[in-house]
């Protein structure tokens, strides 16, 4: 129990907040695999850690994450499916 919570407080569910956290598998020693999806994103699984340009962790929000490869996503670094409308082609 952390100092912020009284003994009778229910433990809060971990809800994604403004504080970034490392990837769920980070530090697990699990091998990282990156699948190059034809005409689509990079699918990343395993013990990865996602960092921004200032080395700050980015919360991936889920264990397996799709990273934009076409440049058209509005939620970069994540994929939002825009490669389809952009007719991105790379096998």
């Amino acid at each position: 129990m952390s100092a912020e919570h009284g003994a009778g407080d229910p433990a809060p569910d971990p809800v994604p907040g403004p504080t970034a956290m490392p990837g769920p598998g980070a530090g697990s020693g699990e091998p990282v695999t990156i699948t190059v999806c034809p005409d689509g994103p990079l699918l990343v699984r395993g013990g990865y850690e996602l960092l921004d340009g200032d080395d700050r962790p980015i919360d991936p929000g889920r264990a397996t994450v799709a990273l934009c490869r076409c440049g058209a996503s509005s939620i970069k670094p994540f994929c939002d499916g825009s490669h389809k409308r952009a007719r991105f082609r790379a096998r």
């Binding site: 699948t35 999806c37 994103p41 699918l43 929000g61 799709a66 994540f78 994929c79 939002d80 499916g81």
Partner: peptide, 16 residues
Amino acid sequence: DEHVEADAAHEQIAAR
């Protein structure tokens, strides 16, 4: 918004 990000990953897992 959650489905934009989640399902862009899910569709790749689901299809292949």
